[in-house]
């Protein structure tokens, strides 16, 4: 086990440096720079600007400086929990090129909790809708209870979030009666309001993001439950007179959930990192919106910061899931003989 952990950790670090290098090269290769704008600035001002931001250094010097700045130099979990990368790990992404006076660390610390909260709601919705529809379909196999929800789920898988989002906006923001309309944009109300009121702003984005994954979970649950409910031990449990609720929930779901849970790990990572489109559609102040804008603005430091944070989250979640699976299933351990 320790050997597995260490080897995975080393791989992770290598992958992150590789990503940083690729991003660095790509950023410099793309035409246009952070200071190009419609109204040209004079040569001498441009030179001063490039000096200020260290862009006049040769590329290898810029690269070396950058790599040193993003190398972890200390570890303090308390600061990390506040999303403070500078005090938590000693990582300093530097000042944003675009947003004067704001550091990339600050921008990430403000935006990441928004993306994480949205991902959390979406995960609850995805798991709740997915597992309940999937179980229902399995229990009522080949009836309308199976075909209709699974048909809807199929549509959910096929519709990308950038189509689903505007449809939900249209329906719940404009078509339904005024008393049950939902806010169509922003993360919170523009006036002081209760937490319940703020929560209403998060419903549509969370549903848009959750629905997509709910579909996958539903199909997985249905398949897995069908298999489990046909097993001998379920028949035995029923024969013993175990209540139907306990048969399904205690005996069926518990086993049926194993494939679903291994699927939820990567899904959780995707829900946090995969919300760019949704953040753009609903104008949410999350990390995804920063990533898109940073690329458009050639905000070099912010591009690097957001890409690395995204990559780190994805790798971290996969790492956790892999570790759990190895722990559950000794056959996957490194060096073990089949």
């Amino acid at each position: 086990m320790p050997r597995f952990l260490i080897s995975r950790l080393l791989q992770t670090i290598l992958v992150l440096y590789l990503i940083a290098t690729v991003v660095f090269v790509m950023m410099k290769a793309v035409p246009g720079g952070p200071f190009s704008q419609e109204r040209n600035v004079s040569e001498h001002i441009l030179r001063k600007l490039e000096e200020q931001y260290g862009l006049h250094d040769p590329l290898h010097v810029q690269y070396a400086k950058y790599m040193w700045n993003i190398t972890p130099k200390r570890f303090s979990p308390g600061a990390l929990l506040r999303f403070d990368l500078k005090n938590g790990l000693g990582i300093d992404f530097g000042y944003s090129f675009r947003y004067e006076g704001r550091t990339v660390n600050q921008l990430i610390a403000e935006a990441l909790p928004v993306s994480a909260e949205l991902g959390f709601y979406a995960l609850i919705i995805a798991a709740f809708l997915g597992i309940s529809t999937g179980s229902l379909a399995a229990l009522k196999q080949n009836t309308a209870w199976d075909h209709i929800p699974m048909g809807v789920v199929m549509v959910g898988i096929c519709l990308p979030t950038f189509v689903m989002g505007p449809i939900l906006i249209l329906v719940f923001g404009f078509w339904v009666p005024e008393s049950i309309r939902l806010p169509v944009l922003f993360w919170e109300p523009s006036y002081d309001a209760s937490w319940m009121e703020s929560l209403r702003y998060r419903i549509l984005p969370a549903i848009t993001l959750g629905l997509y994954y709910a579909a996958g979970i539903a199909r997985l649950t249905r398949g897995s439950m069908l298999e489990v409910l046909g097993q001998d031990y379920i028949r035995t449990a029923r024969a013993k007179g175990v209540s139907p609720f306990n048969v399904v929930v205690k005996h069926g779901l518990r086993t049926g959930m194993i494939p679903v849970i291994s699927y939820l790990g990567p899904v959780a990572a995707h829900l946090i990192t995969g919300s760019f489109v949704i953040e753009y559609i609903f104008m949410l102040p999350g990390l995804g919106r920063h990533l898109i804008n940073a690329a458009l603005n050639r905000d070099y430091t912010l591009i690097m910061g957001t890409v690395l944070v995204y990559a780190a989250i994805l790798i971290l979640f996969n790492f956790i899931v892999d570790t759990l699976l190895v722990w559950l299933n000794p056959r996957l351990r490194l060096g073990s003989k089949p």
């Binding site: 906006i169 923001g173 404009f174 806010p183 169509v184 944009l185 523009s190 104008m283």
Partner: peptide, 15 residues
Amino acid sequence: IEKASTEEAAFRAGQ
């Protein structure tokens, strides 16, 4: 609000 269509939706929704 960068996108014109989004901004118009916000206006229509009374935001």
